[in-house]
Amino acid sequence: MGLKSRMTLVLVFLGFVLCILIERSGLLSAYILQISMYVGINIILTLSLNLVNGYMGEFSVGHAGFMAIGAYVSSIITVRVFHNQMGPFVFPLAVIVAGIVTAATSFVVAFPSFRTRGDYLAIVTLAFNMIVKSVLENIDALGGPRGFMGMGRLTNLVNVYAWCLVTIFVVRNLVYSNFGRAVLSIREDEVASNLVSVNTRQMKIMVFLIAAFFAGVAGALFAHVMQFINPRSFAIQKSTDILVMVYLGGIGSIFGSVLGATVYTVLLELLRPLGVWRWVVGPIMLVILMICRPTGIMGLKELTGLIPREERVLGKKEETDVVTASN
């Protein structure tokens, strides 16, 4: 184990200690604590969507649909199955199960992606989002449009932090593996990558599966921060939020996603004193940013620390090719 990875481990460990300290000491107000958890959840969502939109080059606009499934599944487990007993032990399990169930539903989106892509696939994902919301609104056992409540506040900073790390770890290792190269080749040219015997179908299923898993996880965490969910919280507006975070940070960049999620979440909170005008100023800033920097804050670049050492020289060359790809 090199010095670098040992340092990373120490940093990760320190992060955990910091999280526990913050939670126990009550140093930060409950409000700031809540915002930090939102930031974490948004990072997970943004990264998982970036995998589909940024690295694979599809345009999925229904991420909140996956999130909804995760949120409802985990809430059913903690509230209906375990009746809020043994919360701290059941919860991690519930989160994982929520992720797996969500991943299973991702086939609905993955299969149409074999036949169509670009704007039409975008519509498929949009339709998926709307269908999930519509179905949830019509299931009376889950509260229908009134929503589902009774969850304990089981999400804490440590949980969120841990899942953030898992997401970053998985995405980073995926992207810089053979698998990741195959995914990138789909973005650059699907037909060509098929010709060099990349199994594009399998790759698409895998990417959608992984992205949906993490979206489900984020949904589960979200449900247990809010302690109340209703179908409306997973409407298309939520998907739009996630999209904006991805493109704000920059596609195809892990650090970009982290940055995008953080900046967007914190900024909207900081603008809160503006009242209604917050949502007028926010979009204008987004439009200005897009005009000045169409590829987002990071613009396809990656924080050097996140790139494996042997790839760093290679990475520089890639940047120039990649810009044309998203067209």
């Binding site: 739009t240 439009v287 169409p294 998203s326």
Partner: peptide, 11 residues
């Protein structure tokens, strides 16, 4: 990139 324009439209 086309997507930037879509995000702008959303904004």
């Amino acid at each position: 990139p086309r997507v930037s324009a879509v995000i702008t439209a959303l904004g």
